[in-house]
């Protein structure tokens, strides 16, 4: 302490020390944030408004205004279709994935024999269904053919009967189609909901058991306990999961491929950046709309 005062520095309070160290701890991230995120982000915005000539000795950037955006939206043959495709696919998939993973998390939280095994199997898709492996899987011929031989016919039959049953029960045709298509795509949904199950499971485990005990004494059934306790308590996580699923589904969409191809195959960096920005704006709009609707219903305990 004497050394510090000798050097002419004021002795710091604990709070000041903490603030200083906090800045030091965050510093690596901050450097990276500027070099690898913020500057590239602004650059990409600049590129999207300009035409770029990349040559051996460097590149010339000239400002051309909104031309790239106009080209992406009106001239490019596949951009509009891919964009709407990925948005529609996401709107269809996100509710299914979130509801399904909540259901599974509740199921996996109950006590039964072989729970550890079941859990480790359900988290397996986190490992297997990401990146290049998922891409190759979808193009595998073996799976196509063996699938056609056996399981597809079975599942087709099953959903056909359920479909008839529900239609006769007076359920609207759209809902029936939605549900049966979900059953047919069950692998896709299961494989995309690994992280979401993990998040919900962690959330359910933080709910205090006293709540369930009290409700049980008051005579609530398990079904009621789910709607009145579990659901409100995990509702903040529903929002987290919706956001995560939206971002995740966009990250794996064909849009990414298209943008990369435009940039690195046809070397049209300006157009590619413009596409990427339209894409980012689309994601932001979807996120804002969904968080607006969900956040009204979210229940916070404190």
């Amino acid at each position: 302490m004497r050394l510090i005062t000798k050097l002419g520095l004021k002795p710091r309070t604990y709070a000041e020390q903490k603030a200083l160290w906090g800045f030091i701890y965050v510093l690596p991230w901050l450097l990276g944030f500027f070099v690898f995120f913020l500057v590239p982000l602004l650059n990409s915005l600049r590129y999207s408004f300009s035409s770029i000539d990349a040559k051996g000795d460097g590149m010339t950037i000239s400002f051309i205004g909104m031309k790239n955006y106009v080209e992406a939206l009106t001239v490019n043959t596949s951009f509009n279709r891919t964009l709407t495709n990925s948005i529609v696919q996401m709107v269809v998939n996100v509710p299914l994935i979130v509801i399904f993973s909540l259901f599974l998390a509740v199921l996996l939280n109950q006590k039964f024999i072989g729970r550890a095994l079941a859990r480790s199997i359900f988290f397996l898709p986190v490992i297997l269904a990401s990146g290049v492996i998922a891409n190759l899987d979808s193009s595998s011929l073996v799976q196509e053919i063996t699938g056609q031989n056996g399981s597809d016919i079975m599942s087709g039959l099953g959903t056909f009967e359920i479909e008839q049953f529900m239609l006769q029960a007076g359920v609207s045709e759209n809902i029936v189609n939605y549900l049966t298509s979900a059953v047919d795509r069950i692998y896709q949904i299961v494989s995309q909901s690994g992280v979401q199950i993990l998040i919900f499971l962690a959330g359910i485990q933080t709910i205090s058991p006293q709540l369930y005990e009290a409700s049980k004494i008051e005579g609530a059934t398990g079904y009621e306990a789910f709607w009145k306790i579990t659901l409100p308590m995990v509702s903040p996580l529903i929002m987290v999961n919706v956001i995560y699923t939206i971002i995740d589904s966009f990250a794996g969409s064909e849009m990414t491929e298209l943008i990369k191809d435009t940039g690195f195959r046809s070397f049209n960096f300006g157009l590619s950046s413009a596409m990427a920005w339209i894409y980012f704006l689309a994601i932001t709009i979807v996120l804002l709309i969904s968080t607006y609707f969900i956040s009204k219903r979210v229940f916070y305990q404190d």
């Binding site: 500057v39 650059n43 590129y47 966009f250 943008i259 940039g263 990427a276 894409y279 980012f280 996120l287």
Partner: peptide, 12 residues
């Protein structure tokens, strides 16, 4: 950084 898709900043 979580929200912005990596494609947006890939070229820069």
């Amino acid at each position: 950084t979580i929200l912005v898709p990596p494609t947006t900043i890939l070229i820069p």
